[in-house]
Design a protein around this nucleic acid. Structure first.
Lengths: 186, 186
DNA sequence: TGCGCTAATGCAAATATTTTGCGTTAAGGC
DNA sequence: GCCTTAACGCAAAATATTTGCATTAGCGCA
C-alpha cells in the first residue's frame, strides 16, 4: 500500500480498524479454544462488521497470518553475552523456546496456512536472518569468526523449526548441540 | 478405529466412500486453482453427500491432511547405489525435489494446517525416519559407518523442509552440501 | 478553516457453507 | 437368513461468506 492511500497512515480510520481487529484476534486466541475463533466473532469483538474483515483480509486464514507475522517479530536485537557464540547460543535457545511453545507453533502454522500472502513465510525467515546478521556484524566488529548466515539457518534454525513443527520440540541441550555443531565445522 | 467396526474393512462401504472422496480431492487439486476446492465440490465429484464428509472428517482441512499423508508416503525403499552415502545422497535429492515442488509444499502445509489430527506431522516425520533407517540398516549390514537417524534429520532433512516451506527451495547442489556436512562431522 | 475527492466502512440482502435430526441402507456377526 | 450397528442420504436449520449500495471518515487543496 502506498502512503498516498487514505487509510494507511497511523491514526487513520483504516489503521484503527486494523488495530482493533488484530487485538480482537489476539484476545480470542488467548481465551477460548480455537473453535470460537471465527470471522464473525472477531468482528463482533472488534466492533466491526464482518464484511469489513472479509474485504480487507479475504478470509480468516489471511487475517491470522497477518496477526502471526506481527506477533512473531522479535522485540529487539539479540542479547549480548560477550562472544558471538554466546550470543547465538542464547538467541537460539530463546528462539527454540518460543517456537516450541504451543503459541509459537500456532503462529508458524498460521503463517504457512495462508494460501494468499504467499510471501509471509519468507518475511518470517527474513526476520530470523536479520537477527543472525546482527550477531554476525557484532562478531565481525570484534574480529571474531562467525559462520555464514545461510549456514546458521541450515544448522541451527532449520532443525529447531522442523522439530517444533513435525516432531517433538527440541530440548535446550539439543539446541546447544546444534550450536556446537556449527562451531565444530571445518 | 478397532477392526470390529463395520466399515473399516477393505471393500466395505466405508472404504469405498473414503476412496471416492480421496480420489475426488486429488482430481480437484490436479485441475483447478485451490479456489474450487470446497467440501460441496468434493462431495459432488465423489457422488457423496456433503454431510458424509463433514461427519467423517470434520472439516476440509482434516480431509486435505488425510489425503496429504497418503500422498506423501514413499513409493518404496530408497534406491541402492552401492554405498550408504550414495544412498542418502540420492534419497535426499529426490526428497528435496518432491518437497520443493508446489505439490509437495501444499502437502506439507495441508498436514500442518489441520488443527485436529495433531499427530499427522509426526507420522509424516516417521515416514522419513523409516526411509533413513533403511539406509542405516544397509550400512550396518556392510559395516559402513552411518550417522544417527536423528542427526540425519537435523543436518539434512530439516534444512530441506525448512527452506522449502519458508525460503527458497534448496538447489541440488545445496542438498549435496548438506550430505557432505554430515560426513564431514567428526 | 472549509470543500471536494477517494477509499474504507456499515448495512442488509443474497448466496454458500456447515451443522443436525431422522429415516434408511449396507455390511458383518451369529 | 436374521439381527445389530455404524455409516449414509436427505432436508431443514444455523452459520458463515459474498456483494451491491449508501454513508462516512480522512486527506489534499485552496
Amino acid at each position: 500500500m502506498s502512503s498516498s492511500q487514505a487509510g494507511s497512515r497511523p491514526g487513520g480510520r483504516s489503521a484503527r480498524v486494523q488495530a482493533a481487529v488484530h487485538a480482537a484476534v489476539k484476545s480470542l486466541q488467548a481465551e477460548a479454544g480455537r473453535g470460537e475463533l471465527t470471522v464473525p466473532a472477531v468482528a463482533e469483538r472488534a466492533k466491526v462488521t464482518p464484511s469489513t474483515i472479509y474485504r480487507r483480509w479475504g478470509d480468516l486464514a489471511s487475517l491470522l497470518a497477518d496477526v502471526a507475522v506481527e506477533r512473531i517479530r522479535p522485540d529487539g536485537p539479540p542479547a549480548e553475552t560477550g562472544s558471538a557464540k554466546g550470543d547465538l547460543s542464547a538467541w537460539a535457545e530463546q528462539y527454540a523456546e518460543e517456537m516450541s511453545s504451543s503459541v509459537g507453533q500456532e503462529l508458524m502454522r498460521d503463517i504457512l496456512a495462508a494460501r494468499s500472502q504467499a510471501d509471509n513465510p519468507a518475511r518470517c525467515c527474513n526476520l530470523v536472518r536479520a537477527q543472525i546478521d546482527i550477531i554476525g556484524e557484532r562478531a565481525k566488529a570484534c574480529n571474531e569468526v562467525f559462520p555464514d548466515t545461510e549456514t546458521v539457518l541450515d544448522v541451527v534454525v532449520a532443525p529447531i523449526v522442523y522439530r517444533s513443527l513435525f516432531v517433538d520440540p527440541p530440548s535446550a541441550e539439543h539446541v546447544q548441540a546444534l550450536v556446537e555443531r556449527l562451531w565444530a565445522e571445518r
